[in-house]
């Protein structure tokens, strides 16, 4: 199949950037989106050009490194799929495909399609962990966790921190990410001692990084490759309220 690619090209963070147009021939429908970009880069390199820079790591949909907005939708808009697991068979020969980096003030563009996502790391460092060693795998049932809570914690723990929620949100809000991280630890016994401190610190860091606010449009949930539910945002709103009431005067 043949495609016309409109790809965002930007030398570095200070470059204003522009769209590069690439007419690509003979794309195999079985290629993943990233393999297709590799293929394009091979041709660019053969022509002595500058290859398109993009993030990728595991290429099996679990690391969260790939980050590109394909036709206005982070990860291309296939349900529960990262860009690396999106295959070219979903496109038609002759299509024009627009590829852009995540757009958010808190995710400055590093080069081409690569954005700097260390703001997510700093949110995690603010409280998304348990400070003490909680031991290796415990004996079964030594620490009872209700099945519902365990399931819910696992749903939240699925977040791979790719940033698609921020990229999709019209306000570039990181609420879904922070909600998943806060909920994940607040649902299990090991997370209880730091529960309030964690919620307050992570929300504070989120605000400091310059992410926007939740307008409840649901775009984050719709594009999340791990299908994290927007319910967790409601949970974060409860967690934060609970935390500031309990720790209000501490």
């Amino acid at each position: 199949m043949n495609l016309k690619l409109k790809v965002w090209r930007q030398e570095n963070a200070d470059d204003p950037g522009h769209f590069g147009i690439y007419m690509v021939q003979d794309i195999a429908p079985d290629m993943s989106f990233l393999e297709m970009l590799d293929f394009v880069n091979e041709n660019i390199i053969a022509d002595d050009g500058d290859p398109i820079a993009f993030d990728s790591d595991c290429r099996e949909g679990i690391c969260g490194a790939c980050s590109m907005v394909i036709n206005g939708v982070p990860h291309g808009g296939q349900q529960g799929t990262t860009a690396c697991q999106l295959h070219m068979r979903h496109f038609c020969s002759g299509d024009t495909v627009t590829i852009e980096p995540w757009r958010a003030t808190a995710f400055p563009v590093h080069r081409d399609l690569i954005v700097n996502r260390t703001s997510f790391d700093r949110i995690q460092q603010a409280g998304g962990f348990i400070s003490v060693r909680t031991g290796s795998v415990p004996d079964a049932n030594a620490t009872p966790v209700p099945k519902e809570d365990a399931d819910l914690a696992m749903d939240a723990a699925q977040c791979i921190g790719c940033g698609a929620c921020v990229a999709a949100c019209k306000n570039a809000s990181a609420m879904l990410f922070v909600a998943a991280k806060v909920s994940h630890l607040s649902l299990v016994p090991q997370g209880q001692p730091e529960r309030e401190r964690r919620a307050i610190a992570m929300v504070k860091q989120m605000d400091k990084e310059g992410f926007g606010n939740c307008t409840v449009t649901g775009a984050c949930e719709a594009v999340c490759p791990k299908e994290i539910s927007i319910d967790f945002i409601g949970r974060l709103n409860r967690e934060y309220g609970r935390a500031i009431l309990k720790k209000g005067n501490a």
């Binding site: 036709n71 852009e100 757009r103």
Partner: peptide
């Protein structure tokens, strides 16, 4: 805050696969 957080808009029209 929201305007500041998303100052650049996407050029591609929303067209999920």
């Amino acid at each position: 805050d929201n305007r500041k957080a998303r100052s650049v808009q996407y050029q591609g029209a929303v067209d999920p696969v």
